[in-house]
Amino acid sequence: MGVSIEVQNLNAWYGSNHTLQDINLNIPANHVTALIGPSGCGKSTFVRCINRMHETNPIARVTGTVRIGGLDIYADARPVEIRRRVGMVFQRPNPFPTMSIYDNVAAGLKLNGYSNRKRLDEIVERSLKNSALWDEVKDDLKKKSGASLSGGQQQRLCIARALAVDPEVLLMDEPASALDPVSTAKIEDLIFQLKSQYTIVIVTHNMQQAARVAEKTGFFLNGRMVEFDSTHKIFTNPSDKRTEDYITGRFG
């Protein structure tokens, strides 16, 4: 089951570049939340702060509080523990090139020392079914490398890999931006099905996509969160002038 995410006074820097400024936001559990905004506005940095990936860059810095299911992830946990609970799908599909499809999906568990073969088989099958990839790859799970799939399949493989560790939150950083329309539609269907089990945060620069998949939408601009409301409200009756300008395509 998904959990809610509370963000208070989150600030983030890349070197001297203040990329996130005083973000306050509550992301509800078991919903799809979309973050939109022009590129460079900080929305990717924001999701990377939620699973502490931001700090893997040596010049990066974070202050503030993020609570996932009540746990203060910066004060009370180590990055490794957080990342196991908060799955992430990246902009470009990044399956492990040296591993088979099966090993890619099982990687999160195997590399954390889980070795129950029978359970692993079940989990791999379930994750691939959940990511709508099972029927396409079930015959050569262990024969084909993850890198041999098409781009859209690779991205669904990455989703399956993230689902296999049974996360509570799923972060998606522009998951469809490198894909063709057919693959994009598949990913969006998938997001729709997954939201009953996970809290999903999706970053996108495609407003139609946000309108299609998300219940809640946040608009980011220049490192600040301008507006956060139900998707319907954001797209039909935004309360901030800047949001309206962006939605109607006047800039960005």
Partner: peptide, 16 residues
């Protein structure tokens, strides 16, 4: 991106 994928799964640094 490969390193990020591993870290994003919660794999410890030495293992990844």
């Amino acid at each position: 991106s490969i390193r990020e994928a591993a870290l994003g799964l919660g794999v410890p640094n030495w293992r990844s």
